[in-house]
Amino acid sequence: MQIHALGTGGYHPNEVRHTASFLLPEAGILFDAGTATFRVTERLLRKDLHLFLTHPHWDHIIGLTYLYVPMLLEQIQSIKLYGNRYTLEAVKKHLFAEPTFSHMPAFELIELESFEQPEVQIDSYLVRWQPLPSHPGGSTAYVVEENGQKFAYVTDTYVDGSYEDFIRDADLLIHECYFSDETSEWAEKTGHSYLTQVAELASRTDVKKLLLTHIDPRENTEEPWDLTEVKTVFSEIEFAKDLQSFQL
């Protein structure tokens, strides 16, 4: 399983990070459509795309507008857009609306609530999901399983214990970490996570590797915080960086 980190920042882009977007190029699976979505077309290894949204905040959906031209040019021939009912309604009503952007690409909109079980099979890849309640408006966590490998993507949530079994034993966990320990008092207030609590989560759930994403864009470097101390909590921790790729 190959995973490309296209955008690893939160709220707005800065000089080193675009906002959230992670691509499995061989599977044609994309998680979130932040400002990094312009990077999808040249890295996608097929003509169809399965795009899973975590929630409808602008830094996770604005890139949907960037897919209009690739679809017109048939660089991407079909896009299935998955999200809960609340998210898809927000996309239709607020993103693709007069007078801001009236031309919605030819998405096939698929509500997560339409599935009997919270999962969908895409070729050899099983995608599962779970609601995350602690972010304003909520969010959705995703897991991909393929050939005995497990990848988990969790963003825009406070670490509240509700999804530990869902991500347990993941080979790779990409988890939001908007705040440092020094600014941790803002985490629960805003429905985000901070450094040590994410490391402790990874340790408790026996994941093999942890990549931190959705970093506060005021942190304008690739290594915004010193990880030396937190590596005593969980050693296999790094910052996700734009345009990195990972092979499981």
Rank of each mutant, 00 (worst) to 15 (best):
V69E: 15
L81A: 03
Q77S: 14
A33N: 00
I110G: 05
Q121F: 07
T157K: 04
V69H: 14
G137A: 15
E98W: 11
D165A: 13
E145M: 14
I61F: 10
G83Y: 06
F115H: 10
L81E: 00
F101E: 12
R43P: 06
T87M: 13
H135W: 09
W58E: 10
M104L: 13
H57K: 13
S134L: 11
P25I: 02
G161D: 12
H94G: 06
H94E: 15
W129F: 12
I110S: 06
L24V: 04
Q117A: 15
D165S: 12
I29A: 04
L132P: 12
I62M: 11
S124T: 12
Q121S: 15
P136H: 14
E111I: 01
F96M: 12
Q77I: 11
L109R: 03
G83C: 02
L53T: 08
G148F: 06
A33D: 03
L112A: 07
D160K: 07
K80F: 00
R46H: 06
E145L: 10
H55W: 05
A90W: 09
Y158N: 06
L88S: 08
P105D: 11
Y82T: 00
L67E: 04
L24C: 07
R46A: 06
L30V: 01
W58D: 10
S78Q: 11
G34N: 08
G83W: 06
Q117I: 11
S162R: 13
I110V: 15
L126W: 02
H94V: 06
K93A: 15
V159Q: 05
L49C: 02
L45M: 10
E89Q: 15
V40T: 06
F107L: 04
G63M: 05
T157P: 03
A152P: 04
Y158W: 11
F115N: 05
L67R: 03
E108T: 15
F96A: 14
Y86R: 14
L49I: 00
P105Y: 05
H60E: 14
V144A: 12
L95M: 07
Y125R: 01
F115P: 07
L72T: 09
A141I: 12
